[in-house]
Design a protein around this nucleic acid. Structure first.
Length: 581
RNA sequence: GCGCUCGUAGCUCAGCUGGAUAGAGUAUCGGUUUCCGAAGCCGAGGGUCGUGGGUUCGACUCCCGCCGAGCGCGCCA
């Protein structure tokens, strides 16, 4: 067997141990083989605890089993030596040549280095952001956007065929409220005196849309204010009923024209949202309309199907889904006593549609405040006879902005919220993307605005980007053909600094695999910080542009490979890798 | 009250799905540049992994109880 440069060392070793296991203890061949990276160099490059796991079932001392496993281990060019240590660890030392070969693998693979086969071409759908198009995206949506986009990139790199989707909530009450808000502002702009409801949308963008309508259509949609507010319950006593009455009046008074206002507001807000995300480097393959599920009858169809399957029952005039049968806390209404479907009903239809599209994995990125929805959605899928295991809900916790050590104020309905666009303009896209995914997604995020903006060593984004820029600065000074570095004599790379960097390069494909497996793009961010740190140490301790031509080329090859991996990693996070800063 | 998530260095957080002596950044203190970018590097101090039990060769990791935090418990989306 020859050295395959792009091989994943860990899975290669797992394979070798699996073969040894089959030879030594066929009856235990199903045991999970865990290959890990020891913390101490004395423990080798990789370690396997298989012998200790087998001690009990085989009723033999772990060190005896370890010896047998080593004896049965197939020969590999990559393995220098194998040792038994401690209670029965098997420590594996990789040949220096195999490690050094990674440099060439990186340079030859280029942007493709790190891509793996975990996904094996299976189709994965990532649905994220999916914010109501009722106003600008705020900083909470931003985290979902950054996380979802990075996750999709990571899954793509891990060999999945990924589809990125935004579910557009274009049906339902919130959109009606937006349309009403726009219309009321429009009436105001034509001189009407009215009390704008406190629970309608307050933002300036609503006035902007109203202005557009009046500029394009003049007084075409003007109606008497008394009729707009006719028979509406008192706002202070019944704010929701007040708003619903206004919406009903708007629909009646405007007739066909209501659709125009509604549509205009939707188109404007969705367009704004799309531009915002595009500027943020977040793109979607599909913008899926909730309304389409009603228009093509899928919602009605799925509810009827649940009825005939006796998954629903009628109570107090409404139709309830027996979600308690699937572990939910209580049953849930899918169809109201007035005949209208709830959001849950269209959500069931949406998920059924997702499943029918044949994705092997369906990943919903949701705000953590929606976690209570998971049991009912899973329940609905099971009720429809679908394998809910194909669906994973990734929860994203809130992000809280800090400025001068103080929590930045952020209220939603008042129109004073901090928008994603504001944040991007203040901090920049790169730092915003990086900071959003620097933390585990299910962990609260304290977003330090001052740190994100600072152009200093404290800022992890600059720290990583700077490492990349430094390499290119050196390469520019050298001025040679970068392609030539593939021919460098990498056997000259053997200092401690160089060994550390080689190991990082080797680890990268595994990091991607872990990040994909755990849906954790933050692992990429931590990896890049570590890699950059060890590069900076190397930089300070060694000279690259030395007189010896072969040594120079070997070192340049190594740092060029480092830069390539930084570039690849940052790309997954949607962060640029500038050659000059 | 019930459910979900979470408590790791002064602060912000990692910890490879149960492994060997728990790690970064920051803050504090002390060093470092006639030399490829100092947006850098080197070093020091800093811990009962909230707490009490349990499971086993082995627990920050898994289970249970308490303490504390966030979120969720609509015929809203």
């Amino acid at each position: 067997m020859s050295i395959i440069p792009s091989v994943n060392f860990k899975s290669h070793l797992a394979d070798l141990f699996a073969q040894a296991l089959r030879a030594v203890a066929p009856e235990a061949a199903q045991t999970d083989i865990v290959i890990e990276r020891p913390k101490q160099v004395a423990h080798g490059d990789y370690a396997c605890s298989l012998a200790m796991q087998l001690a009990k079932p085989l009723r033999k001392p772990p060190r005896v089993i370890a010896q047998a496993l080593i004896g049965a281990l197939p020969v590999s060019d990559m393995v220098e030596k194998v040792e038994i240590a401690g209670a029965g660890f098997i420590n594996v030392f990789i040949t220096t040549a195999a490690k050094q070969a990674t440099v060439k693998a990186v340079l030859q693979s280029g942007d493709a280095y790190g891509r793996g086969m975990l996904g094996a071409g299976r189709r994965a759908q990532v649905e994220f952001v999916s914010a109501n198009p009722t106003g600008p995206l705020h900083v909470g949506h931003g985290r979902g956007a950054a996380y979802g986009a990075s996750l999709a990139n990571v899954l793509d790199a891990a060999g999945y065929k990924v589809s990125r989707e935004y579910y557009v909530n274009d049906a339902g009450r919130q959109m009606d409220i937006l349309a009403l808000s726009t219309w009321l502002r429009y009436l105001e702009s034509l001189g009407a005196k009215l009390v704008f409801p406190g629970n309608a949308y307050q933002g300036d963008y609503v006035r902007d849309m109203a202005q557009q309508v009046s500029a394009a259509h003049g007084a075409k949609y003007l109606r008497p204010v008394e009729e707009v507010f006719a028979h509406a319950p008192d706002f202070s006593e019944q704010p929701d009923a007040h708003l619903d009455a206004l919406i009903a009046n708007a629909k009646r008074l405007l007739g066909e024209d209501y659709a125009y206002i509604h549509n205009h507001a939707l188109t404007e807000q969705l367009g704004d949202c799309r531009n915002d995300l595009a500027e943020f480097g977040v793109h979607f393959d599909e913008w899926f309309s909730e309304q389409s599920l009603f228009d093509n009858g899928l919602v009605a169809h799925v509810v009827e199907r649940l009825k005939t399957d006796n998954r629903l029952y009628q109570q107090d005039g409404a139709w309830w889904f027996r979600s308690t049968a699937f572990g939910d806390e209580k049953d849930r209404v899918v169809q109201r006593d007035n005949g209208l479907y709830t959001y849950f009903a269209s959500d069931i239809a949406y998920h059924l549609n997702k499943f029918e599209r044949g994705f092997d994995r369906i990943i919903n990125v949701w705000g953590a405040d929606h976690h209570g929805y998971i049991p009912r959605v899973n329940g609905a899928l099971k009720a429809l006879g679908l394998d809910s295991g194909r669906l994973t809900v990734a929860l994203v916790q809130f992000a809280v902005l800090y400025r001068n050590g103080q929590k930045a104020a952020m209220s939603t309905r008042s129109g004073e919220f901090v928008t994603l666009r504001d944040l991007r303009r203040e901090v920049g896209n790169d730092a915003t993307r990086f900071f959003y995914v620097m933390r585990k997604s299910d962990q609260h995020l304290d977003f330090d605005l001052d740190l994100a903006k600072s152009q200093s060593n404290e800022n992890p984004v600059y720290y990583v980007q700077y490492a990349h820029a430094r390499v290119h600065s050196v390469l520019a000074q050298w001025g040679g053909e970068t392609a030539r570095l593939c021919e460098a004599d990498v056997a000259l790379l053997h200092s401690d600094y160089e060994k550390v960097l080689l190991q990082h390069l080797i680890d990268y494909p595994q990091i991607i695999e872990n990040a994909a497996q755990d849906l954790s793009p933050h692992l990429i961010a931590f990896y890049l910080k570590d890699l950059a740190a060890d590069f900076h140490s190397y930089y300070n301790a060694s000279r690259f542009l030395v007189d010896d031509e072969t040594v120079k080329c070997a070192r340049l090859a190594l740092i060029a490979a480092v830069a390539q991996v930084i570039r690849n990693g940052l790309a997954l996070l949607g962060v640029s890798a500038p050659e000059k800063m």
